[in-house]
């Protein structure tokens, strides 16, 4: 559970005052200005956890949110009583090129609900744009032969271009023991 023990007393008092209260959506937007931007993720997730919004409300907050608000919605998903109905938000974030959104999208909610094909592509995208894959929830459980094949092909492409193969590729391959190792160029 994402909570923030380092919140200042003023920040904590503000958050306790707005959590679950009428107008919490406005507080969700302005949270960074009240608790400090370093604590905004945790404060926003707490607001969502208390409010328990349905998928429709979450979708509105995400679609009309700035990058930080979107990230908070994604981070909160595994802590909310939701089935797969919020998946379109995860898929939207995975289409973006903002590494912070992609990392936030690949938490336990995606591990639980995201379709295997999209999930593999998301993992490969992480390797591609440099999001460390240890941030991907459930990686060891969901990694399969097809993901290993994609990682190996990616490694071959990098090697052909004379570029280094990211360590994360080897990590993916190590998760799929039956798969033949990468041939270095």
């Amino acid at each position: 559970m994402l909570t923030d023990p380092d919140l200042t007393p003023e920040g904590r008092a503000w958050l306790d005052g707005v959590a679950g209260a009428e107008g919490w959506e406005t507080a969700f937007t302005a949270a960074g200005r009240h608790v400090g931007r370093d604590h905004a993720d945790a404060a926003r997730v707490e607001l969502l956890r208390v409010a328990r919004p349905d998928a429709e409300t979450l979708t509105r907050l995400y679609q009309r949110g700035d990058a930080a608000e979107r990230r908070a919605v994604l981070l909160a998903l595994p802590e909310l009583p939701l089935g797969p109905e919020a998946l379109p938000l995860v898929e939207d974030a995975l289409r973006a090129n903002d590494a912070r959104l992609i990392a936030a999208a690949l938490g336990p909610y995606a591990a639980r609900h995201l379709d295997q094909h999209l999930w593999r592509h998301a993992v490969l995208k992480c390797v591609f744009i440099g999001v460390p894959i240890h941030e991907v929830a459930g990686l060891a459980d969901r990694a399969d032969i097809e993901l290993a094949r994609m990682a190996r092909d990616f490694a071959a492409e990098r090697a052909a271009a004379g570029r280094p193969v990211p360590d994360d590729v080897r990590h993916i391959l190590s998760l799929v023991p039956d798969f033949p190792p990468v041939q270095e160029a």
């Binding site: 200005r33 931007r37 090129n97 590494a99 912070r100 591609f128 744009i129 440099g130 999001v131 460390p132």
Partner: peptide, 22 residues
């Protein structure tokens, strides 16, 4: 505006180069 944030440049966690800086 009271919202200018310059002290700590909000840099995205620059993982080893991302899609743009690749």
């Amino acid at each position: 505006s009271g919202r200018l944030d310059l002290g700590e440049r909000e840099r995205p966690e620059l993982f080893e180069g991302n899609s743009i800086a690749r």
